[in-house]
Structure formats: structure tokens, C-alpha cells
Design a protein around this nucleic acid. Sequence first.
RNA 1: GCGGACGUGGCGGAAUUGGCAGACGCGCUGGACUUAGGAUCCAGUUCCGAAAGGAGUGGGGGUUCGAGUCCCCCCGUCCGCACCA
Length: 842
Amino acid sequence: MAIETYYPFQQSEPRWQRAWSEAGIFRANGDGTRPKSYILEQFPYPSGKLHMGHVRVYTIGDAMARFRRMQGFDVLHPMGFDAFGLPAENAAIKHDTQPGAWTERCIDMMREQLVRLGMSYDWAREVVTCRDDYYRWNQWIFIKLWEQGLVERRKAAVNWCPRCETVLANEQVINGRCWRHEDTDVDVRQLDQWFLKITEYADELLRDLDDKLAEWPNLVSAQQRNWIGRSEGALVKFKVKETGEELPIFTTRPDTLFGVTFMVMAPEHPKVQEWIKGQPNEPAVRAFINKIVHEGRERRTDEAAEKEGIALGLSAINPVDGREVPIWLANFVLMEYGTGAIMAVPAHDQRDFEFARKFEIPVRVVIQPEGVELSANEMTAAYTEAGVMTNSAQFDGMQSERAKGAIVEWLTGLKQGEPTVQYRLRDWLISRQRFWGTPIPFVYCDECGLVPVALDELPVRLPENARFGQGGNPLAGVDEWVNLKCSKCGGPARRETDTMDTFFDSSWYYLRYCDPKNTDLPFGAEAQTWMPVDLYIGGKEHAILHLLYSRFFTKALRDLGLIKLDEPFSRLLTQGMVLAEGTDPRSGERRFFKMSKSIGNVVDPGEIIEEYGADAARMFILFAAPPEKDLEWSPSGVEGISRFINRLWRYVQNNLTALRAGLAEGGAMTPAELTRQDDRDLLRQAHETTRRVTNDLGERAQFNTAISACMELLNALYAWPDRPEDPLARRLAAFATARLALLLSPFAPHLAEEIWHQLGAEGLAAAQAWPQFDPEALKVETVEIALQVSGKVRGHMSVGIDEDEDAIKQRALADEKVVAFTEGKTVRKVIYVRHKLVNIVA
RNA sequence: GCGGACGUGGCGGAAUUGGCAGACGCGCUGGACUUAGGAUCCAGUUCCGAAAGGAGUGGGGGUUCGAGUCCCCCCGUCCGCACCA
């Protein structure tokens, strides 16, 4: 009689969470007696509440960490909180409190939720970036980078978000809008700001994508490559005829130099202001510049935007042939790329072509494609491909690809140019005009200028009495904090009130986990033992931002002598989003969307844990899709997993006496001890499942197939005839059940413990060695093979495992189904694939 | 335009090295048990066909004894970058 029971997760889950914590089995050791494995998930912003995306990334990481730990690795699996940032400051304004208090409350709530999910973290290593035992090291690193020449304060055109009331890094501007405010255009302002010179590492950051990060997803490497944007070309020195000054340009097409018919400068180019002063066209040019600059970068860099320009009334001399060409200003030339000025070759560049046609500037063909005669007057588009050089003096007749090098070499000899490499990557603007971040540890002294705070005076703590909601940066309003005496001269000085971008905090936190209590250094030799992170798991949205900054930090810290390491994350897994069904507010269409309040399709992990338990939530998320793909949340899918859990639970309850006895009697067995075929099949399947789950959790990281293998084993247990009175069958059932518990423990750790315990097994399941499969038990005597006639399956046949190939072929040819399809035909060929099939070609 | 990912039943997804397409789960259909069933257990479920059989992995071609998988062309979806000289 079947007992109707359900797995009592409400009682079970807290019990095992307590047991794990008391046993301390998730502590990372680091004594070098076992191989290390560093498994890390991107730490959360402490909003106070986990969302499904968090559950997904942390479940994936936890399954991996538990698996590696059971495999005998010394696993470092830490957790912390990326706790500085705007939401805390906004909460402080709204609730008239301090951001620190609000943040700490949120951290406590999130930590509790993570514990309730059964995550196996080494909580003793928790890192919280808004505490001064962490951010003092931000300040320490900042000063070290400054000493190294990698920090610079300078005036520059920067992006300003009026909603955030702060500047942003280039990486935080998306289509001209703020990354946090999709509806807010950023302004460009000229401000004095702090920069980290990431561009000094552009080449290494690019190179190592290929050399050292071959295992990263192509998507991420490609996006970083694109963002760094290396182009090879030449710097060519044009000369302004009227002033005699040099006007250098960057080009990737030196082969088109003889086709230059005009030059274009960016409207903001500083030289323009000098050159037009007092000229008759000054008012017109100024009006043009104002118009373009006020248009904003968003409109201006839109490819569809109409080309606009004005002639400067000056001319430039082309160094290759001494020709004079007019200099223009145009909206499509940007100050921040190259030299802010370009040579224009309308015949061979589409932008230049459109501009030339609009303003009736001559077109000069210097590259001819094979077989076609280009005519400057009749062209309707630029010819941008390679071809044969023409109208190019001594280079005529040369292939244009070869001419690129030849022309640059010739110009270099004449000191009129040189080969050069340009990057799209800009320096990282790191300062923010906000309160809730690491104070930049510098002081402005009237006498001594810019002075770094002495290292032994760190941390520069945030004041606890700042007032919020007054507009501007609250730090600037705390007079007793801002004003101090200069440490050098004792005169009056003011603190820098800018704080650091929170991406600074997250660029090295993975190093702090290695040595979280260090009071002398941000991290010591411990980091060398644990690094690099063996598996890093996080979202694709950080493909450029966080992942590029962290790579840069690792290289910079290496060059400061803090660690011997080139790349922080050996392997990267970018997990997909969690989607749920919702109704499109515009079209009314029902489909899957990213969970959002506005669509109303948010599923709260707290409620799911409440209703189905942490293990069901974990297993569903791992089962529903491979980790890197988007996952469609399905209520009936969660039911399905819950059904599986209860089905396993019920199996154990219904057979508990026999299973306990079977385990006490020895459990494991060899195939030789079993005589019944169904027993041997079940034993084989238990080992086969072990093999598959081990393989899936290893290199493949395919949790969905691992879980389906476990489901198959349970199905097999149900199909297998229980014989509680047969000692051998008892042992077999106990072995298979205990094995299933261990194989499931990375996914459903509480259920695994509960079953392990019920069976009467010793110790904690999470602390057991990962099960091995017995190759002997995997062996079979016979195997089903397919019989094909001309590639189509026509039947099946059982063959002995060592049966002779010729014998198999003979039997296959005699098979009645085969005969039916080969009758009257000539058998031309018989192909045998061992243990798979026979294909008879007729 | 450049770069990346992808396209398999009603749905999520399997198919690991070129070898039996559709594992596992959802949903659906039928049955058992039952006062009841939205519980549980059992069976079935790619499509067409009564069956034999045929068709089938976005479309078209190719290589091969054999292609979801490799090659070429095309179509479509999603993501990133984009007047970058």
C-alpha cells in the first residue's frame, strides 16, 4: 500500500542549513594539501531582496562548488556585497536616514535569503565594499596607481547624467543615454575629472583575449575586442598653408593619400578657435560650431544624420604631392578619435563622398578596381575596396594593399608621417560627484597643490552626519570633513569631495576574498594560492564594464608587484536571463519577457521557496535550460520538479526498512554477485548515471542533462521489482538510492542530506567523496544495434559484445527485415560500426 | 555596415567524436485507485497513414555508405558595436 507523503522541506531545510554551518564544511582551507578550486559568482548589489536572476547565478555556482568540494578540491566559494552606489543614497534621501544603515539592513536580509537557498559559502570571508576595512584598500590602491602614473586628473569633455547628478564613464553611456536612466540623454561637459589610464593596457588587454582567454565565450571576447577597437594606420603630417602649422591626421588608408581633395576638422578642435580669430568668416564659423555642439552627441553621431559643414577659408598642403586642399569643419568628425582632423578622399570613402557631392568638392580616383574604369564624375558611391593604384605618382600600377605599406615607409623616410595604431578605448573616468562611494584620498592645498593622503592615514572615512536631499554632493556640505590642514605645509586645505565609481570596488574584490582579514595590504600571498578564479559566473551585461575593468586591474596590480597574475578569470560562464510570460503593454501580445514590474511578470524567489522549497527552486532553474541560455519560468515546470522530489521521497519512505537494512548489510556490490538480469541492469544504470552526472558537471557544465539522468535512475528504480525479503535486492536498492542522493546533492542539497540521513549513512552527504563509477559494472554482454539498408533503419538486432564482425554481417544480411528490402538488389557494400549499426548498401 | 549567438514535436529542451532524431520534463489522451481528484500509479503521445510504409531538425544545393552535426548559397530571430577616419 503506497503511503501518500510529501517531502517536508519546511522542517528539513533549516535543519541541514544549521548542520552545515555547525560542521564548518564549506570553509576554504588553503593549506596546499589538496588542489584548489576557486568558484565565484558576481556579488550582488544589496537591494534587500533576491530576484530570480540572483537565484539562477548563485545556484549554478553552488552546484559547481559542491561538486568540486566532493571531488576532493579545496574549494574557495565566497560571497559578499557590492554595497556602494546610488540606490542607497536615494533611499537615504527618501527615508531621511544614512545610506550605511539602509545598506546594512539590506545585506542582512539578502544574506538570510542566500542561506535559505542552501548556498555553500564560506561566510567567514564575506566582503562588503562599503565598510572601511574594504574601501581603505580602494584608497590605498588608488594612491599606488597614482604613484605609478596610472591615475590622472585632467580637464576633459565628459558625460554628465542630470538624473544621477554625476559624470559617467564611456562604458556607462548607452546610445547617448545613461545606463541607469534609459530615458535620460547625457550632456557633454568640460570638467576636471579623475581618470584611470586603462588605455596604457589596450594592447595587452586585446592580445590576452586570444592568448590567455581562449575559453571565454566568443560573445564576450568579441565585444571586448570591438570596444578596444584597434586600428592600424598612419599618422600623416599635413601643413596649414596660411599659418605654417602642422595638422596631423590619422588614416587607415594611406594608399588613398593622392586622392585627398579636402580636409575636415572636428568643430571643437582647439586650433579652429585660434585660426578664425579676426577672420571675416569668424561669425559664420562660430555659429556653425555652436549649432553642432549644441545638437548633442546623440544626434550628431547618428549615421543617418545629414552631413553638415562649413569651409574654414584655409588650406592644407598634402605632403605626398604638395597639392593645396581646402579645410572644412563637419559634424561627422569627432574630436576624441584620432587627431580630431581627417584627410578626405571622396572617391574611396563613403562619408567623404557624400560630403563632397553635397558641397561640390572635386573627386579624384586613385584606385581602380579590376576590369572597370571608375570615372570621378559618374560615380554614385565611393569605391572602398582594394585595386590598382592610379594618379599616384611612383606608386601607379601597384596593388593598393601593398601600396599602404610602401607609402607609409616613403613618408616615414621624409619625416612626413609614421605607422601608428589607434584605439577606440578611452581612459576610464573614475570620479563621481556623489556621496555613497569611496572618497578619493586627495587633498587640495593652496600652497602645495594636489596632495595624496598619507598611506598610514587611511582610510579617509565617509562622515556620518551628511545631509541628503539638498541637491549636489552631500559630502561637500560637511564642512568639518572638507576642511583640514595640509599634511605637508600645515596650511588650509580642502578634501576632494568626489568619490570613486563603484566599478572600482568590484574590480578587485575577488582578490580580497583570498585574504579578507589582511590589515597590512589589500591582499597578501594568499591571493597567489587561490588565484586565478577557476570558474567565474555572471551576466552578459558585464561583458565590457566589469570584466574589462577587472582584467585591467589585475594587470595593473601585477605591475605594482602585488601579485604574479595576468588574467583574473580562467573560465567564464555567462548565464542567460530568467524570463516569464507577460503581456506586452503596447501590442497586448502574450509572450516571454525579462521579469519586470512594468510588465507585471515578476516571480518572487521568496514565494517559490515558501511554496516548493529551496531544492525545487534550485532544481527547476538548473533543469529548465542550459546555463548560458535564457530560461523561461514555468509554474508547471516547477510543479514537475516538485513531483520528482516527492516521488523520490516517497520511494524512500515506502521502502525505508529494507533500504536501511540493505545499507547496513553493505550496500555496494559487484555485478558478479548478481544473477538476475534486471538486478544487473539496475546496478549498471546506477553506475552509468554516475558517469553521466560526473561528465555533465565537469567540462560541459550542463546541469539539465545531469538532472534528467537522475530522473531516469529513479524511473528505473520504480520499474524494478522490489524484493525486500531478498538480501541482495535490499543491498542493491540501498546502493542505488544512496548513490542517487549523492548525485543529486549539488542540485538539491537538503533533500540529499535528508535521504542520506534516513538511510542511516554516516556523516553529511555534502562532505562525502564524489561517487566513482565502476567500469566493470558498466559492461554489458549484448548490445542492440541498428540494421540499415542504404542508410535507412529497417530493423534491430542483438549482438554479443565481442561477437566477430563477419558473423554479425552474415546475420544482418540474413535478417528477414533486411532481406525484404534487399531482395532483387545487389549488395554492394556492408559497413559495420562497432556496437552501433550495420549498414547494407544495396 | 561590422561582430557574435541561434533556428529540432503543442512547449522547455536531448542527441558528448559524422552513426538508430526527439532522452528528460511540461502539456495532452486513455486506464487504475477513489466519496472526490488539480493527489498518486500505469500506458500512450513528431507528422501523414487503418496498416504496410512514407515524410521529417528554417529553405536550397553539396560531401559521405550514412548529415541536426561538415562545406557552399539563401531566409529568419535575438544580442553587441557603429559617421571611429
